[in-house]
Amino acid sequence: MKKIETKIDEAFRNTFLLPREKVVTNFLVDVLNSKYQFREDDKKIEVISLYYYASSPLSFLFALPNYEYYSPDKTIQIAELHLKEHSFEDYSNIDVQELCKKVLDENNIDYSAYLDEDNQLDFANYWENQFGLESDFLMNCWRNAKEKTQSKMIGFLESSDAGGGLFDLDNGYDVPFDVDVDEYLQSHGFIVTKEI
Rank of each mutant, 00 (worst) to 15 (best):
F156A: 03
L169E: 03
D168S: 13
E98H: 05
E89W: 08
D136W: 07
E117Q: 15
K152L: 09
C100I: 03
C100T: 04
L169I: 02
W142E: 05
W127E: 00
D90I: 00
D110N: 15
G132K: 12
D136Q: 14
M153F: 04
Q130A: 09
S135L: 15
F123K: 07
E98K: 07
L133I: 04
N140C: 07
Q120Y: 12
N129K: 14
D118G: 11
M139G: 14
E147D: 09
N125S: 13
K146N: 11
I154M: 00
V96A: 07
K101T: 01
L169Y: 04
G165F: 13
S151L: 02
N108V: 12
K84A: 13
L169Q: 02
K148S: 14
C141I: 09
M139P: 03
V103K: 04
N107G: 00
R143T: 09
D90N: 04
F167M: 10
N125V: 09
L99S: 01
G164F: 07
D90K: 01
T75G: 06
C141E: 06
T149W: 04
Y91T: 02
L83T: 13
D110I: 07
C100R: 03
N140T: 14
I76A: 05
C100F: 03
N129E: 12
L99H: 00
K146A: 14
I109L: 13
G132H: 11
N108W: 06
A79E: 01
L83Y: 07
G132S: 14
E128P: 03
Y111F: 15
N129P: 08
L121T: 03
S160V: 03
N93V: 06
A124S: 15
K148C: 10
E98D: 09
A113K: 14
S92K: 01
M139Y: 02
R143Q: 14
L133A: 06
L138M: 12
L115F: 05
I78Y: 06
K102R: 13
N108H: 14
G132T: 13
K152H: 09
S159A: 13
S159F: 01
Y114V: 07
N107T: 00
A79M: 01
L115E: 04
F137R: 07
